[in-house]
Simulated assay, not measured.
Amino acid sequence: MNLGSVTWDRDTVENLRLLLDRQLSELEECVRKQGSEHKMRRNAAIHNYFRKLEKFLNQEKFSDCAWEIIRTETRARLQQMFFIMLQISRRN
């Protein structure tokens, strides 16, 4: 894709990882409160999604291009999550 190499600041990457971990924990807590088996399956789907991303990174030997693809994918999913949360908050 003729993209230049992107340098990832370790502190920024760590902050992103912590943010994603916190959001996943909050999501798991929310799912447990609902007690719905359907939501538990969705939670498993989220875990599977991130496992696929990790597998992709391993296959691509953690190349700069692979990280850029992961960054783009993660940003798109976070935007979707924000949109869904916004819709839910408007309903309440």
Rank of each mutant, 00 (worst) to 15 (best):
S25C: 02
L27Y: 09
E29H: 09
E29P: 07
C30H: 09
C30V: 01
V31H: 07
V31Q: 05
R32V: 07
R32E: 04
K33P: 04
Q34R: 15
Q34D: 11
Q34K: 15
G35Y: 07
G35L: 04
E37C: 01
E37I: 10
H38C: 01
H38K: 11
H38R: 11
H38S: 13
M40C: 03
R41G: 05
R41K: 09
R42L: 00
R42N: 13
N43R: 13
A44Y: 00
I46P: 01
N48Y: 03
N48I: 00
N48Q: 01
F50T: 00
K52D: 13
K52G: 14
K52R: 04
L53N: 00
L53G: 04
E54S: 02
E54R: 08
K55S: 03
K55C: 01
K55R: 12
F56H: 15
L57C: 08
N58H: 04
K61T: 12
F62W: 11
F62L: 01
F62Y: 12
F62D: 00
D64A: 08
D64S: 14
E68P: 04
E68C: 07
I69E: 14
I69L: 13
I70W: 08
T72G: 06
T72M: 00
E73D: 15
A76T: 15
R77Q: 05
R77G: 04
L78N: 10
L78I: 12
Q79N: 06
F82H: 14
M85I: 07
M85K: 14
M85Y: 05
L86W: 11
L86A: 13
I88E: 07
